[in-house]
């Protein structure tokens, strides 16, 4: 078993611990561990930029969650789960596994399929070389739009009074 498998199996373990833990604080710490492990995985795969972005974003969200809920004095014990949810999940899992079994033969051939397609399209590619990272302006514009929507949305939700006449 190489290191990648160990890192990934530890991260799945951390996720399962986060899901089943009885105290929310433990769950938050487990998800934090998960994020750090995934960052280590990205370092090993030499994709430093995406790993760093992922770590920064997710840790800041976890920090926000922890701070807000500790400040509000929320009681952290939770117990039990929804029965209907478990049934739905079981059904979904069975279908997913069946589908994965069917396509697993094809997935192993991804590399050969991709190289075939790439060679047939080599003539359509321009000669210009793009930079190391893709910058698609329209995508960035819409990400900016969605963050603007989040800012206005959070301001909307957090305001004191919603209706004019109600208290």
């Amino acid at each position: 078993m190489n290191t990648i498998d160990i890192i990934l199996s530890l991260s799945v373990l951390a996720a399962i611990v986060a899901v089943e833990s009885k105290r929310i604080l433990h769950a938050i710490f487990s998800v934090g561990t998960l994020c750090v492990l995934i960052f280590v995985f990205h370092i090993k795969e030499h994709a430093l930029v995406s790993g760093a972005i992922q770590l920064a974003v997710e840790l800041s969200i976890l920090f926000t969650v922890a701070r807000i809920f500790i400040n509000k004095g929320v009681k952290f014990i939770e117990s039990g789960g929804l029965v209907l949810g478990r049934v739905i999940f079981l059904f979904f899992l069975v279908t997913f596994l069946a589908a994965a079994f069917v396509v697993s033969g094809e997935l192993l051939d991804i590399n050969s399929v991709l190289s075939q397609i790439m060679s047939s399209f080599a003539s359509k590619l321009d000669a210009q070389k793009t930079s190391a990272h893709l910058f698609r302006a329209f995508d960035m514009l819409f990400i900016l739009i969605s963050f603007f929507a989040v800012i206005v949305g959070v301001m909307t939700v957090m305001r004191k009074k919603g209706h004019e006449d109600k208290k």
Binding site: A149, V150, T156, G162
Partner: peptide, 19 residues
């Protein structure tokens, strides 16, 4: 991405009255 941007705006719109 456009779908997600529209969805985020719609979440805040449904919650507009904050009741």
């Amino acid at each position: 991405i456009c779908l997600e941007a529209a969805s985020i705006a719609s979440y805040a719109l449904v919650a507009f009255g904050t009741e």
